[in-house]
Write a protein that binds this DNA or RNA. Structure first.
Lengths: 230, 230
DNA sequence: ATTATAAACGTAAATTTAACGTTTAATAAA
DNA sequence: TTTATTAAACGTTAAATTTACGTTTATAAT
């Protein structure tokens, strides 16, 4: 080691949003802390960074531990580092956020770790500055929904336009005009219409679509910037 | 200390943008590292976080040391934490960015610390991942210019519309239509027109304006969101 | 007076947004 | 076998915004 400076505990906290297509609402994964201080209280999922571990690898490790998931949307959001934020000691915590497709499997794995999915409007008190983290993440979700195709991270690969609209309704917290939404989302030319119909919510059935990830990535390389300001 | 986990060096790096109103271009503050590894090579200004110091306080300390400035635009951007990013040891570095009004005083203070202002198109090689940091910061600058009044952080309190336009030209790297720019910026109703004229660049002289920070902060509280997508 | 020129002001077509109304496909009831 | 029902899909139009230009004005130098 060349440097001679104070060393500090570095943690990862991960804010996981999941969308429940049956309930049509957004949820957040929380778990009950096992160690003092705040043992038993609700917290974002998290853990400490290992000596030889990239931050991003640490975030992936934490996420997989609590959800069993790899290779999903996972990005760094912000770092929290007030000197006295954690009474347990000086901890600098890097906040990541993740978007996943909710299903029963993830509920089971979460359960095994004392983790639970909470509706956004029924959140418990959170430890330390985790409420602040959640506020930041929620803002980020709204903001990103306008400029990136994050909706498709939260829905199954196959989805209908009414489903997609309901998701955006949930994110924006208001009901978008469905005719304008349809026009805007289809005008991007990034949805692939299949000939399948989903009849779970209507007699007529809604056509099943798929997001054209390949095309989107190609366009991105050419400087394309999505605009879903609905 | 309650926790028993590996401790890691935590550093602050600060990307400082300055705008030179006489040269009409954006500059970045860099300094020559004094310690190994990479002693003598160019780097963003930075330092290690103290044991009992908030991250934001550390960033303010670093910025003041190299520029003499307090109470200027200074925000966290992102955290860099690859395990092997720094051959000198495991260092997690939190990147901050700052926007300041360039003048001779800051050049002098910078000089005393072996720091120098570089044009954005004449940058030297940078240590570790600092080029990546600079890329991120530049993107952030462009992005923020559209949705926040950051231009006024880079200009003197008194400025003219042609000056403001030239700044935005520099940020966006293209020449905006001055008639449309004027309309858009004035339509926000956030500029206070004074009866003073600046005649340094024309016989006619350009009216001096001031940004209405108070009004902007008031509007922000009410959910207002600036849109300068010129 | 005349000229030069940056600064300030103006306009109109094209595009986008916002706010609605209408038709269609399938099922279930009459 | 009609008819009613309803989510899904499609359509229209006025208002607002953006884009791309042309014109006038104030001042110093000639």
């Amino acid at each position: 080691m060349t440097y001679n400076h104070p060393k500090i505990l570095v943690a990862i906290d991960c804010l996981v949003f999941g969308y429940d297509t049956t309930e049509n609402n957004l949820k957040v994964l929380l778990f009950q802390r096992e160690v003092e201080p705040f043992a038993g209280e609700w917290s974002l999922i998290g853990g400490f960074v290992n000596e030889d571990e990239d931050l991003s690898d640490g975030a992936e490790r934490v996420l997989e531990k609590f959800t069993g998931l790899k290779d999903v949307f996972l990005e760094q959001l912000s770092t929290f580092g007030k000197a006295n934020r954690d009474p347990g000691g000086r901890v600098v915590s890097i906040l990541y956020w993740s978007l996943i497709k909710l299903d029963d499997l993830h509920r089971d794995i979460a359960n095994e770790h004392g983790a639970k999915w909470f509706d956004l409007d029924q959140l418990p008190e959170l430890v330390v500055d985790h409420s602040e983290m959640l506020k930041l993440g929620t803002e980020q979700l709204v903001h990103n929904a306008k400029s990136r195709p994050i909706g498709f991270e939260l829905l199954p690969e196959d989805f209908t336009l009414p489903q997609l609209k309901q998701l955006y309704d949930a994110i924006y917290g208001k009901s978008i005009d469905d005719r304008n939404f349809r026009k805007k989302i289809l005008s991007t030319d990034l949805l692939i219409k299949t000939d399948k119909k989903d009849k779970t919510t209507s007699k007529k059935g809604a056509f099943v679509y798929r997001f054209d990830t390949e095309k989107y990535n190609e366009l991105r390389k050419q400087g394309y910037h999505l605009d879903l300001n609905v």
